[in-house]
């Protein structure tokens, strides 16, 4: 606790600096907590062992070069889906947000409607619409674009709201100042508001990437050979279900944590320059 005492969060203010007795008590509580946590984990491990899930042969699939390569290929496609969806949803999201705060009602209302509608729809429902309803209406896309389109429809609506919040946070004082020196609405937006909003949005971009990477796992449903879908095939081929999916999970977690760390670093850098 001492090391974080100066960061000034509320939880630190709740407690005094601990005296020797409290510290001893804390040590006891820590030990008990550790034991309880370990007991829960051990219990699960024993049960898993009893059903043969801890057999080293089963886990060997996660150190097998071919299998890891197969998952890595899936990860590659996951990243492509993530990148493409992020790029498209960011562009579309910014346009929708600008539309929603536009002064023209004919732009404002449809944009607001689109944002609110797609924010309220589950991704899988959108995906099913694209998979099952659109072919009936005479339009069918390749699997990759089916998935990307579904993710973009949902994610751009979410990003639009983030952008709008970012723009609104700039404050009306600045845009009014811009107008006072004779700038047009477009110039105020382009010269004053958007550059600042963009800087503030850089970390949101990474969050968006993490979001789309997680959502790309619905390739499992459309049969696109991304990471989770390849995990499914691996589990079927090896018969080691838990092991395959835990391996897949590790891939997601590592990639996303790396991305989040980048976001944190960017946030602190943005903070310094702003």
């Amino acid at each position: 606790m001492n090391s974080t005492a100066k960061t000034g969060t509320a939880d630190d203010a709740l407690f005094d600096q601990l005296g020797p007795r409290a510290r001893a008590r804390l040590r006891t509580v820590s030990i008990i907590a550790t034991v309880v946590l370990l007991a829960v984990v051990t219990g699960m491990l024993i049960a898993l062992g009893a059903s043969g899930q801890l057999d080293p042969d089963r886990w060997a699939i996660l150190v097998d070069g071919d299998y890891l390569g197969f998952l890595a290929t899936g990860l590659g496609l996951t990243l492509v889906v993530g990148l493409v969806s992020t790029a498209l949803s960011v562009i579309l999201g910014v346009l929708l947000a600008l539309g929603r705060i536009s002064r023209s009602r004919w732009l404002r209302l449809p944009c607001a409607g689109l944002i609110e509608f797609f924010r309220a729809m589950p991704l899988l429902l959108i995906l099913f619409f694209i998979m099952f309803a659109m072919p009936m209406l005479g339009l069918r896309l390749p699997t990759f674009w089916q998935l990307v389109l579904a993710i973009v429809a949902h994610a751009s609506a979410i990003f639009a709201e983030i952008v709008r919040a970012g723009i609104l946070s700039i404050g009306s004082g600045q845009s009014e100042a811009g107008k006072a020196i004779g700038l047009r609405h477009r110039e105020v937006m382009g010269l004053i508001v958007l550059p600042q909003a963009t800087r503030a949005l850089t970390p949101a971009l990474i969050t968006q990437m993490v979001r789309t990477i997680k959502e790309s796992s619905l390739g499992y449903v459309v049969g696109l050979s991304e990471l989770l879908n390849n995990g499914k095939i691996l589990s079927e081929f090896t018969g080691n279900f838990i092991q395959s999916f835990i391996g897949v999970g590790l891939f997601y977690i590592i990639v996303n944590i790396v991305l989040s760390r980048v976001a944190e670093r960017l946030t602190s850098r943005v903070g310094k320059h702003a």
């Binding site: 997680k214 499992y220 999916f245 977690i253």
Partner: peptide
């Protein structure tokens, strides 16, 4: 950290 970085579908299936 683990849960927020994993897809929901993966967690559910697992």
């Amino acid at each position: 950290d683990v849960v927020r970085n994993s897809p929901l579908l993966l967690i559910v299936v697992l």
